[in-house]
Nucleic acid binder design. Structure first.
Lengths: 142, 142
DNA sequence: ATAAATTGCTATGTGGCATAGCTTTTATGT
DNA sequence: ACATAAAAGCTATGCCACATAGCAATTTAT
């Protein structure tokens, strides 16, 4: 494998691995009609009840322009509630509905199954290493 | 970080890291008007002169339906030549043009710069580990 | 010889992401 | 205090990667 062969590029391999994961996610979560983005939104709202929409955007690296219609979709499906913020009229505060809170454990389990499937060739230790390195790539310095 | 928190999911972190890499690639290669996909095609044709279009699809994990217009684009830009195969009239054989062959080293260097930038927090050893683990994820078993 | 597979293609839909531009509300600076 | 800037949320729109369906030509398999 030459110095800068395509195969030796991490960016290329990131793209291929991510595409495979995306694909596998779709297979596992198709019945729940959740895509990685929408699942990510629900999971974060679940982990941080009452989170502001802008903060959700920031944490997920999304633009509010793209978040807005997805929130509307989740709201219409009865999974997310948008409430006004007490002190700041610009702010929306997000929470899962009761139904979504009850469904989340099952969805999280499906995601665990999905991860176990597409990572089946990696040991527990290798998965921990991979997680650490990936976070080094995309998270903020400091 | 909880067991199956979003942050702890490798799929999510893959997606974030890949998105950042894509973004950085676009910055570095915008002047060459090459995207990751088109660069990948050129790089592989460069590494395997005379490769068949179907084989290129297979190696890059693309459908020929999506490859065809990209090959047309690269051909119109004078970077790729499509020739008929001697023994099989269905097959197209691909080569870089002289211009593309001369430009490739510069592009490869730009990609190297790009990788050094978005991987600057990883040591050489960590990069090798990451490469190995990513390849374990998406390449065929056996 | 007929059926099946391969190759390359067009047309078309979807999903993620980007920018531009807008309104409303809050924060800042003189 | 008032003007300006910034933040929050939104709509509209376009680009790109990728998927499926279907087609024609050719080659391989039965």
């Amino acid at each position: 494998m030459a110095e800068d062969a395509l195969d030796a590029q991490i960016g290329y391999n990131l793209r291929r691995a991510s595409a495979l994961a995306l694909n596998d996610f779709a297979v596992e979560l198709s019945d729940a009609a959740l895509r990685p983005v929408t699942y990510g939104m629900l999971a974060l709202i679940d982990e941080k009840p009452g989170i502001r929409a802008a903060e959700l955007c920031r944490l997920l690296g999304m633009k509010s322009a793209n978040m807005a219609p997805l929130l509307s979709e989740l709201e219409e499906r009865g999974l997310v509630e948008r409430d006004d913020h007490a002190g700041d009229k610009r702010v929306q505060v997000l929470n899962l509905t009761q139904a979504a809170r009850e469904a989340m454990p099952g969805w999280r389990q499906q995601v665990r199954r999905h991860e176990d499937r597409f990572l089946h060739r990696l040991t527990k230790k290798e998965r921990a290493t991979l997680l650490r390195l990936l976070r080094l790539i995309w998270t903020e310095e400091d």
